[in-house]
Structure formats: C-alpha cells, structure tokens
Design a protein around this nucleic acid. Sequence first.
RNA 1: GGAGGUGUGGCCGAGCGGUCAAUGGCAGCAGACUGUAAAUCUGCCGGGCUAAGCCCUACGGAGGUUCAAAUCCUCCCGCCUCCA
Length: 384
Amino acid sequence: MRFEILARDGAARRGRLTSARGVIETPAFMPVGTLGAVKGLTPQELEQSGAQVMLANLYHLSLRPGIETIVRAGGLHRFTGWNRSMLTDSGGFQVFSLAALRKVDDKGVRFRSHLDGSLLELTPESVVAAQEAIGVDFAMVLDECPPWPVTEEVAAAALARTLRWAERSIAARTNDATALFGIVQGSSFRHLREASAAALSALPFDGYAIGGVSVGEPIEPRRAAIEWTTPCLPDSQVRYLMGVGTISDMVHAISHGVDLFDCVLPARNGRHGLLFTRQGAIRIKNARFRDDAGPLDPECSCPVCARLSRAFLHHLFRSGELSAAVYGTIHNLRVFLDFMGEAREAIAAFRVADLARRWVSRSADEHRSETSAAVASLEPHLRP
RNA sequence: GGAGGUGUGGCCGAGCGGUCAAUGGCAGCAGACUGUAAAUCUGCCGGGCUAAGCCCUACGGAGGUUCAAAUCCUCCCGCCUCCA
C-alpha cells in the first residue's frame, strides 16, 4: 500500500492511495457492503457508480458464510465479484451496535450470533488473521467503540483497551499485502482523543482511522473529535473517518484533512426513498411527487436520472417495487461519489470553501433543521 | 319456498351488554435513518372544540329491552351457503 499527497488546500489533502487492486483517488467515499455487496446492487452497478473501494464487515462475514468458506472460494474479491479495492471493518462497530449480544474483556469480544445464538469470538489476532486470509486490501484492527454519551472513565478504558489491542494487532501481522489501520478512540474528550492519536501514531500502521463517531452523538462532539484528532495523526499517512457521514460532515472533515469515508446513509436512505439531489434531499414517496414529471435531479449524471421521472420513482417506491430500492441506491451513491470527485478538484484548485457553499447549503442535509447551523459552523474552518 | 349464516370506520377484519370513537392489517398523511441484526422503524389516521379534557356523529335501516347496546329482542333491507 502506498499513499501520496498530491495537493493541499489548508488542511485539506488531495491524495492517491495505491493498493494491490488499483488506485484510489482521495478524498474518497467507500460504499458499505456489509455482507459483501451493497444491498441491491451488482458489482458492475457499483463500479458504474464510480466507487473505488467497497467496505465489508468481518463480524457479519464470520457468522455467515464463515471465513473458511470465503477462503475456499478464493478470497473475498473472487467470492463477491468485486475486483476493486476492499476494506473490511473488524467488528468493532458491532461491539457498539450489538451491545446486548456481546461480552468484552481484554482477550477480545465474544458475540452471541444474532442469527442462531451460537458463540463467536473475535480477538485482535483472529481479526487480523481473518482479514489477511480473505485477502482484503485494507484491514481494520479490532477496537472497542463505546456508545455516546459515555463517561470519561469508560471512554478512557475503551481507548486503553483499543490501544493494547492495536499493539497485538501489529504483532499478529504476517504480511503487508493487507494494509492495517489503527483506530483512534476517546469519545468527546479532547485529551483522550489526542492521547489516543499520539499513541497510535507511534505504531507502524499503514493508515489511521478516527473511530467512536457516528454512534449517536450530536454534530458538535463529532466535529470536535475530528478537529482534535487530525492534527495528532502523521501527516503523510492516510486518514479514515469511520461511519461518516452526511455531505456536510464530510465537507467539514475534508477541510480538516480526512481522506477516506464510509457511510450507510446513501444506500440505506436510497432504499428508504430519501433521495439526495443537488437541489436538496427529497422524500420521493411524498404525495407532492405523484405527478412530478421532471427528472429526479436534473444536474445528475446517473442512469436513473437519465430516464426516470420523479413521478415514476414515486410510483415504484409506493408500490414497494424492488427496483425502487435499487434506483434509490444507485442515484444516492452517484451523488456522494460525484461530491467526492468535486472535492478532489476543489482541493487541487484551492477552492475547498466553494465546495462547502456549493454542496452543504442545498444538498444532502437540506431537509434537516440543523442545516443552517451546520453551514454556519463550517464557516470558521473555511478559507475566505 | 324452507333452513342457516352474515352486514363494523376508505378497504379487509376483530369485538358480541358497560373499561368502544371501537384490536389488527392494508391504503392514506408525515417523520426518522451517519464504521447496516434496517426493502426497516416511528407518529397521525370520523368530525369539532375555550384540545392530558369536552362535545357531536358513528358499528345496514327502523323500532324496542336496559341505568347502559356495535353487542340482546322485533320487523325490514342487502349479501352468502345449503335444501327444495
């Protein structure tokens, strides 16, 4: 794995990440395909959306079909048909999201399977070994990802454990074909974030992730965590903000030097009928679209916008047609990936501030009451 | 012609003397969704108000029994099944 920075605008970086599978231009958005596929899409459709990397999840794949099965199938790429780069999350997020089903101690995490109740154990070592075995390009360490809010004591303990696990993860590596990323924790405590980032930076990771966000926190602590953490990470290495986010979140993070993002939002909302457009987000099932013959987003280049009207999409969503979910996903992913393309251009052109004005005020978050506040809160971070 | 059954809010369908403006589901209206246990979940859904309360109108129609009826009785109307 190699990462080079091609241009900067303030703290923002435009970079190039090279894996065995190819080149990833950064900043980049990585669609989430937890079970090995973005829900509803073929690998070809995902490619056509412009995705350079896909995420999958080791916890879920370990339960079903099982790591051994994937290995026998020739590795995760061959198994899924996705030939571009692949990043797997370790299951750290499931430590948070499936809290009722797991037990954590220093050794690792034991989950009761949400599928059949059987016991699954993940340790820092097993997680590294499994990700190497299935041949992913980017692997994440096992981390402990506490919910929000959390006391300082709990955050400190999770951070400390994540750090001990990070050291064991490094020690467990057997090759460098699979890049390994450490994960910063520390919740919304500045000194914990800084200590976590500094300690991880001393370890020979290929990249660094900011974790412990998108776990239910409001916008302010999320942004604060990013602002505290990024200055403490090695400048020359790639940075990945886990699970984020909305376009305004990503504009903010990009302006603070984050390179990689993943989020279920475009896919999940696409399936649910919340469609992002350059004119604002719309709930296509709303009655007002019943007779709207116009395109979903006249500024969009995706295949859905190329030939389907809002009225027809409205009808498909109302009718529960499978294709509705597919179309929503294809379109939303294109919006997010196009946004990232523009972000790269903006950094190269020293125009990150314009990016914010172009996307944040009228795009993905327009339906939210917090939008104007989000724009306002970005202003101090943007160069005039 | 005879016997039995049935008629509930936009639709389907519970309820079978009071706690029923009436369980559910669908449809409808709106909302949520940030390292995916999510093609999911939530709220509203007869009308009107000086609304955590009150008042109307409602369970095919008309009468009746009762302190009280969607629930019981009588007649009528519609629909279904079986026998002639």
